[in-house]
Design a protein around this nucleic acid. Structure first.
Lengths: 339, 339
DNA sequence: GATTTTTCCGGGAACGATTGCGTAAATAAA
DNA sequence: TTTATTTACGCAATCGTTCCCGGAAAAATC
């Protein structure tokens, strides 16, 4: 005995009315008498009637759902961002469909096509570290499809963007190492073509130069998979360790990279910060429980999710095509462990 | 210039055919000539035609989407489970809609109603630690709505269930503490009415008794919010510490509780394992980087997600009402840090 | 050549809801 | 009383798709 949800037709039949009357009564139209409205409302309640969102979607040509693509939900930064996204989306009656690219370009493209075919009304995306080719995003964008970039921005595509002040965050972290006396500071970072990589490396370099130190290319290691593959990070760290003039500190530009470095250093039996100091971007809430108390750059992830969603909904619900786009830059925070 | 997706009608018009013919051609019906099929297929491809899933949903009375309710996605165990869920759902063409209860009963009920109103085809749920009243779930279940429980099971409701051998996991962990010589072992656990709480506490007690130790109620602390609220855990730990005969080890029955204990012990300046040994359930991948190398019970989260989803899809796609239900019990693993 | 069968395709209803338009009855204005 | 206006409701189209029928033309059979 399969459950069949009550429809407007059921109500109409039971009350001897037409479906249009019932529909209008439920929407509290002025052209329905108070008595009829009363009747309809009561019967709808008794049947536990709820309008079928699918039928509505078909009619309205919108699904009231938004897609989110991140590299990984098992990543504190992204799961916190998603919480922010859900908080505003749900309040506005939107469903959030989350997908993961796992830092793979192919997965990102597939997942995007899938979401598009599920007729989402808009997209929130932090591109994968492997994404260089942008045709999949540009195609969608050209159709006027609402997209908001967060965290990992695509500069080429004109739409709303939300990120932290990556330059400043990296600058502060590097400066903090410098102030503690470290001078040979290496940088382990993400794919070179990501916006966050460029900006964070720039901040790192600026801090070094501020201290009159020339940045050395050999000390900057790019990890194409963004730390998704541990060996990539381990190799980078090992290369640094084996340098004739070994660095005395590492600045890692992402969550996965920071913990990856820690793993690699532990494996190589290098003490932190004795053998090598470490600092980096991280939103993990376990940072304070790690064996070495490290300083981290923390992003306002929840807020970033909220802001991005607000901008997206604005785009979606706008009557006319939006021409002016915002780029919101939030501030990060430097968390220094108590000593 | 808003984008309008190509429809079957566009193809029909362009080719001078009827929509029924086009529809059949696309579905490779035998009553359409090879020539026409060819024509339609080519034109569909050139228009980048994709059937509108919303129209299909309306017709088929199914949305090809499943809902997932967990307490928190920012929890390694659940995010790993979700990865497992997505892997099989996506492969079968289903969308996964993830919602969080944040261990709140009200949020769980609201979220469930919301999902139901979005006409999902089935539900995967690990109930919140605050859930005692089951009417919301029972109502849905009575309508024949497909539900699969995972991790935190509801015994009362007859449907498929997936979990780990909680008793054995807890038994092994406690036994491991006993083998290391600890004798006064406390247990910090979740809400008393959760299935995982009952089973894990039972395993803990069985191990103690195996060693001829009488379990003491004062050493078992229940956290109603499952560690979602840190003070709850801190209080429990502090009470244990202040006992006349202080315990020498703590067994924590969940991820949040294990790290919560670690925080509390750190705050109270109790060394691990010197002042207090600690072991517990955890799927965090940062365990090996923590300041105290603790032994943890690790659950096959990914696999659990896969199995649960397979069972759910089986329920959803079954022609006749399913009467026989399975309870799959997976094995956990005891991760002992190298010394 | 006449009949039957097959092949191939179109018409139209249905899924659940909204909405523009038409209209009968009730009321108000003339 | 007649005309104009309002009130309160129904009809039917629409969204994109599938699928049950029905039927013309072609092919096969007698």
């Amino acid at each position: 005995m399969k459950y069949r949800a009550a429809t407007i037709k059921d109500i109409a039949q039971a009350l001897g009315l037409s479906t249009s009357t019932v529909s209008r009564a439920l929407r509290d139209s002025h052209e329905i008498s108070a008595a009829t409205k009363q009747l309809v409302l009561e019967h709808a309640a008794s049947l536990n009637y709820h309008p079928n969102p699918i039928a509505l979607s078909l009619k309205e040509k919108k699904s009231r759902s938004i897609g989110v693509i991140v590299s990984e939900i098992a990543n504190s930064f992204f799961s916190q961002t998603i919480n922010g996204i859900e908080s505003v989306a749900n309040e506005k009656g939107y469903t959030v469909i989350i997908s993961q690219s796992h830092e793979s370009f192919e997965k990102e493209v597939r997942t995007l096509q899938y979401l598009a075919s599920r007729s989402i009304d808009g997209l929130l995306i932090s591109v994968s570290s492997a994404t260089k080719d942008l045709t999949h995003l540009k195609a969608l964008h050209q159709y006027g499809f609402p997209i908001v970039f967060f965290d990992r921005i695509i500069e080429d595509i004109a739409t709303h963007k939300v990120m932290v002040d990556n330059f400043q965050g990296a600058y502060n972290a590097t400066m903090h190492l410098l102030q503690q006396g470290y001078r040979r500071i290496a940088c382990i970072t993400n794919s070179a073509h990501l916006s966050i990589t460029r900006e964070r490396v720039a901040g790192y370099i600026a801090a070094l130069e501020k201290h009159g130190i020339h940045p050395q290319p050999a000390l900057i290691k790019y990890c194409f998979h963004g730390g998704m593959l541990l060996p990539e990070v381990t190799d980078a760290v090992n290369q640094l360790i084996k340098l004739k003039t070994k660095p005395d500190a590492i600045f890692a530009t992402s969550d996965k990279l920071t913990t990856g470095c820690m793993r690699a250093l532990k494996k190589a039996k290098v003490a932190i910060p004795g053998g090598m100091a470490l600092t980096g971007f991280s939103n993990s809430d376990l940072i304070e429980l790690l064996h070495a108390p490290i300083t981290v750059v923390r992003q306002p992830a929840f807020e970033m999710g909220q802001v991005a969603t607000e901008l997206l909904l604005q785009l979606i619900e706008s009557k006319r095509p939006v021409k002016e786009f915002e780029t919101r830059v939030l501030q990060s925070e430097l968390l220094i462990p108590p000593r």
